[in-house]
């Protein structure tokens, strides 16, 4: 099992919105859906580097604010006619807190 680290309270992330976590691997967008699921992915659209954390979240997808590419939050894969993918990370909620994959931390410590 992946080690997880406590990041923040779930309520710090708006429903159908996202917040950014700075990590040694770059910025990670932490999404919260309308049904309170959380997902984490790189905050950088593979198309023109748009900040996905600023996109509109619908269902379990997000649309990039710059040119409207749509990504599946669970797989990070671009939807529809566009191809490409964003790196995703494990995230989950427990007791009103959000936990994120600890390897994001380790990336730097190990380096």
């Amino acid at each position: 099992m992946t080690a997880m680290i406590d990041i923040a309270a779930l309520d710090d992330i708006p429903r159908q919105g996202a917040r950014v976590v700075k990590t040694p691997l770059g910025c990670v967008a932490l999404f919260r859906t309308a049904t309170d699921e959380v997902f984490a992915m790189e905050d950088r659209c593979p198309h023109k580097a748009g900040p996905l954390s600023e996109g509109i979240v619908h269902g379990s997808q997000v649309t990039c604010p710059l040119h409207g590419w749509v990504f599946d939050l669970a797989t990070g894969r671009a939807q529809g006619a566009d191809s490409g993918a964003v790196r995703t990370f494990a995230a989950r909620t427990e007791g009103g807190r959000v936990f994120l994959d600890a390897t994001l931390l380790a990336a730097r410590s190990a380096a």
């Binding site: 680290i5 923040a8 976590v21 040694p24």
Partner: peptide, 11 residues
């Protein structure tokens, strides 16, 4: 601001 800064925590 970012909700968390893991670069600091890592350090």
């Amino acid at each position: 601001a970012p909700i968390a800064d893991l670069t600091l925590r890592a350090a």
